[in-house]
Design a protein around this nucleic acid. Structure first.
Lengths: 124, 124
DNA sequence: GATATATTTAACCACACTGTTAATTAACTA
DNA sequence: TAGTTAATTAACAGTGTGGTTAAATATATC
């Protein structure tokens, strides 16, 4: 059941509904029913409750109490851990710099250079 | 079954074994058995194959052929999409600036200001 | 051709995930 | 008190995930 926090965060983010809910929460607090509204044509309210529970357990949102309402707010701290984890890969995706890409880019760079010389003065 | 690419990437990352495999691949190509080695006390080789398949389907690695070996290499491009998605939340986690944090920070900022001004004999 | 090595596929199992509908809890309102 | 609204819980079903062991495949080597 209980996974490591980073895995839990990634798992929580691996769903478009939940990501949309987080996006909504960047604009401010929202009740469950407010968060649910864009999805009620697709799924029931209990389904929404479950999604929110996943986000809550991952620490990405916090539910507070206000009468019978449950305003939710974004808690983005877990995303910082994701960002930190991602840092070690930045150099690999920037400029398509993975292992294969590194090699292929060198090759295509040469080809483009050649092509440019052939069609001198012409663009794209 | 087939989810959107971003969800697939997040799901692939939601497992410590798979993340460790990616980390290993930042040091260069590795065969399946090389990638498997640190985990063989915990799981079987077919389990490793499955994990690699998840990473492959998410586009995070690519398997090539070399005799009976299957060297894998990191393809970090999908991580760029993750990074891009995360950008919209950066302001929320930097300096603990989620909605609640924002409010509390404002309050404490005022309190600090007040405390400071006390020494100058002024209050807001 | 036979055998060893590297890896995958098949068949299976337990359990977690995502959804459902119906019932329940909690708080406000007439 | 009764009724309405907001949200959750319960019970259930289908599917996906992550693991297993045993068998199959592919390539190299003897």
């Amino acid at each position: 059941m209980s996974r490591d926090p980073l895995s839990q965060t990634f798992a929580a983010l691996a769903d478009p509904t939940r990501r949309a809910m987080l996006a909504r929460l960047t604009e401010g607090r929202a009740n469950v029913s407010e968060l649910a509204e864009p999805f009620l044509d697709r799924m029931s309210l209990p389904a929404v409750t479950k999604h929110l529970k996943v986000l809550e357990k991952a620490g990405l949102i916090e539910k507070t109490h206000n009468a019978q309402f449950r305003p939710c707010e974004l808690k983005a701290e877990p995303l910082k851990d994701v960002a930190d984890w991602m840092e070690q890969y930045r150099t690999f995706w920037e400029a398509g710099l993975d292992r294969l890409g590194e090699y292929l880019n060198t090759v295509t760079a040469r080809q483009k250079k050649t092509a440019k010389r052939k069609h001198h003065g012409r663009k794209k």
